[in-house]
Design a protein around this nucleic acid. Structure first.
Lengths: 195, 195
DNA sequence: GTTTACCTATCTACTAGTAGGTAGACGTTC
DNA sequence: GAACGTCTACCTACTAGTAGATAGGTAAAC
């Protein structure tokens, strides 16, 4: 039995799924209030402003991500397996529609009109993810698991863009399988044995 | 001297730049009215509802795209050059911030909450672009300009995802140069000479 | 007895959309 | 060529509904 989430966690849960569906301007306090059966004013008690709510949301998301990526490193020593697990995570999310899009990718699209405090946090997530991917690629190259055509930083950026672009395509074509069809060949290319 | 655009064209121009900045829910009739110096009601005269406005916008965008891609085919016989020109177009747009994001990529992110009439048009643009890329890759492969590891449809999807993901990253990192850094190696990979 | 978590009630600003009117351009018809 | 109706493009003024946010109160917990 899963313990009942606190109200503030419920608020963030609902807000997250609404943002994933429609972005920063795609949800309102009323939407959240209706979804969890409290009043709008009660949400303001937990998160005085919308910018603070979404900032807290991105902070939590980044914390979860950090934890998740660390546990990947703990579970599998091989950088190749770590990378595959990362992709598999999103494959599952998109497949079962539980989290069919990255919150930060969604918000990044709206960057020009996000409150500064939110925008900087989103940028922070992108930096963090790029660094993680870079380090995994670097470690894999050292163990001759990966063949990198470019500097690891650049390969990491290419991979990240593929993942986000694949999410978008899966959504645009309404075809969850498209995500794997796009991303898998990209990591397969990296794993190709040295010629 | 450029002829003065009609009011309805001006409305679509402003709406497009606002959508590119903040998506479907990121602009209002009042924003457009203020920008071009007319009243809200006058916009409703040209486009009765917001869904109709954005539908017309996507129709126009797709028409422009179709024209642009056709002229690429007319200008350069080589599929390799066509592909490069396509990427260069976006490189320039992102570089000078004139159109730093694809309207349809922006809207695709918000797919789950778009009016049906808009969503289907966005999907249409994605299909059309995927088909164009597929045909260019196919033609290039026939002329031995490209080496395709996968079926041309799949390579087209991978390329498209790279382009959209690269747009997102350029925006997230606030680094226009990142677009080329991500996309160029992807097309270089396709152009690699047969081993 | 202060803090926490919620409530009702309300506010101002803004949302898309409507009703109805005006002024000029266009084309007929006498 | 003047008078007529119609059409286009815009306007002012308004609606009902929603946005985020606030004030102030209640009731239970620590």
């Amino acid at each position: 039995m899963k313990p009942v989430a606190s109200t503030s966690e419920q608020i963030l849960d609902v807000a997250q799924s609404l943002i994933v569906a429609g972005g920063y301007n795609g949800f309102s306090y009323a939407d959240i209030a209706d979804a969890i059966g409290i009043r709008k004013a009660s949400i303001h008690h937990h998160f005085p402003t919308k910018a603070e709510l979404v900032s807290a949301l991105v902070d939590r998301y980044r914390q979860q991500t950090e934890l998740g990526l660390k546990s990947l490193q703990a579970q599998s020593a091989s950088p190749a397996d770590q990378l595959q697990s990362y992709v598999d995570f999103w494959k599952a999310c998109i497949g079962n529609a539980s989290l069919p899009f990255c919150v930060c990718a969604m918000l990044a699209g709206e960057m020009p009109m996000l409150p500064d405090e939110v925008a900087s946090r989103v940028r922070g997530h992108f930096h963090h993810l790029a660094e993680w991917l870079t380090s995994v690629l670097q470690a894999g190259a050292k163990q001759h698991l990966f063949r990198l055509d470019k500097r690891p930083e650049q390969e990491a950026q290419m991979l990240m863009a593929s993942v986000h672009g694949a999410m978008l395509s899966a959504r645009a074509f309404d075809d969850p399988g498209l995500f794997a069809a796009i991303v898998e060949p990209q990591i397969a290319r990296l794993r190709a044995p040295v010629r």
